[in-house]
């Protein structure tokens, strides 16, 4: 961990001002010399590993007084970016109206980490790829653009099968983001020039030729809130993993359905553990709309969801696993009592 200057800010404009120091250079936000500190579960971790090297750490936790509210007004949901994962997961309204959100949070990390980690930080958590996290590996395009990717032919059991490039196959590790992308959430971003909103699906960037750029955030911008329109009581988050708890997904699915008189009028499917970014399976969703649920449909949807997947030496199993997880999650969502 490099030395840094610690600053604590008590209002959003001060935060933006403090982070603006980093805007001068052209680095992606993850490389900016000033980094916001919320829960710290990613930042401090990666700083200890010398992967992230900010010279200024801006503690934005005091902003929680304005940025951590959970609001369910008029059928829409607004989640402050500094709300803690555990608080949102434990909220009975969220559990009732958005089980996919509550479960994606509840099944992530551990109770202690969920107490610390914020929603905004959580969606920005960085890959668990060993070759990225361990700076003694020379080849990581994400850490050191142009250096190559050690994971392509390395031990890649946990790596992605969707959204990969020849430059990077690192998995996006989060759970909550799958719920947000499934529900077409909007991200509220606060920056120098005020507040802007983007669809959640536009927040993350697939690696393509520049895996070091992970999001469309500009340096100095902060996520201030997420909003979801409508309620999704018929939704599930299913997470498959080696151990029962406290592990990243091998494969997960966020599924939300709107069923009217037995016919699926709207369907959302997102995949976790499989892709380089939060992953929406839109082609698969298209197969569902207007249909009645049956297992054969679930199978077709699952096949479509993984249609473009590319396996490698240790992770090829994730394609078949991903399909089974999607089919199972669809089944659960279709048959759940609400």
């Amino acid at each position: 961990m490099r030395s840094f200057t610690y600053q604590r800010v008590t209002d959003p404009s001060a935060a933006i001002q403090a982070l603006a120091m980093a805007v001068a250079n052209n680095n992606p936000p993850t490389e900016a010399t000033a980094q916001p500190l919320a829960g710290g579960t990613t930042l401090i971790d990666l700083m200890k590993l010398d992967v992230m090297r900010p010279r200024t750490v801006v503690d934005i936790n005091p902003l929680a007084s304005t940025w951590s509210a959970i609001n369910l007004d008029g059928g829409n949901l607004r989640l402050g970016a500094l709300a803690r994962m555990s608080d949102v997961a434990a909220n009975p309204e969220i559990q009732r109206n958005y089980p996919v959100i509550a479960d994606s949070l509840r099944l992530a990390a551990s109770p202690q980490l969920r107490n610390m980690a914020t929603l905004g930080g959580n969606v920005l958590q960085r890959t668990r790829c060993t070759y990225f996290r361990d700076i003694s590996y020379a080849n990581c395009n994400k850490r050191d653009p142009g250096s190559g990717c050690a994971a392509l032919d390395g031990f890649n059991r946990m790596h992605a099968v969707l959204g990969t490039s020849e430059q990077c196959i690192a998995t996006y590790p989060g759970d909550f983001a799958q719920a947000l992308i499934a529900l077409d959430a909007t991200v509220e971003i606060t920056g120098k020039s005020g507040v802007r909103n983007i669809p959640f699906a536009q927040l993350h960037k697939p690696p393509d030729d520049s895996p070091q750029i992970e999001t469309t955030l500009a340096p100095g911008e902060l996520i201030s809130a997420f909003t979801v329109s409508g309620r999704w009581p018929r939704s599930v988050y299913l997470k498959a993993r080696d151990r029962q708890s406290y592990e990243f997904a091998l494969s997960s699915a966020a599924v939300a359905l709107d069923v009217q008189d037995g016919v699926i009028s709207d369907a959302r499917v997102a995949l976790g553990g499989l892709a380089t970014v939060p992953w929406r399976a839109r082609e698969a969703e298209a197969l569902i709309k207007g249909q009645k649920f049956d297992e054969a449909l679930a199978q077709r949807v699952a096949d479509a969801a993984l249609a473009g997947a590319q396996g490698r030496r240790h992770n090829a199993f994730k394609i078949a696993l991903g399909k089974r997880v999607v089919a199972r999650a669809l089944h659960q969502a279709a048959t759940m009592e609400i």
């Binding site: 668990r128 060993t130 590996y137 050690a150 032919d153 390395g154 031990f155 059991r157 946990m158 080696d242 151990r243 029962q244 708890s245 406290y246 592990e247 990243f248």
Partner: peptide
């Protein structure tokens, strides 16, 4: 069911050398 230290044979190095990747059972297991 859980424990294996994975080697990257190209480098002769252990890859999952931490407690998030070298899985030990947790209470729920």
């Amino acid at each position: 069911l859980l424990e294996a230290t994975e080697l990257d044979p190209r480098y002769g190095r252990y890859v999952n050398d931490n407690l998030a990747d070298y899985l030990l059972p947790v209470n729920a297991d």
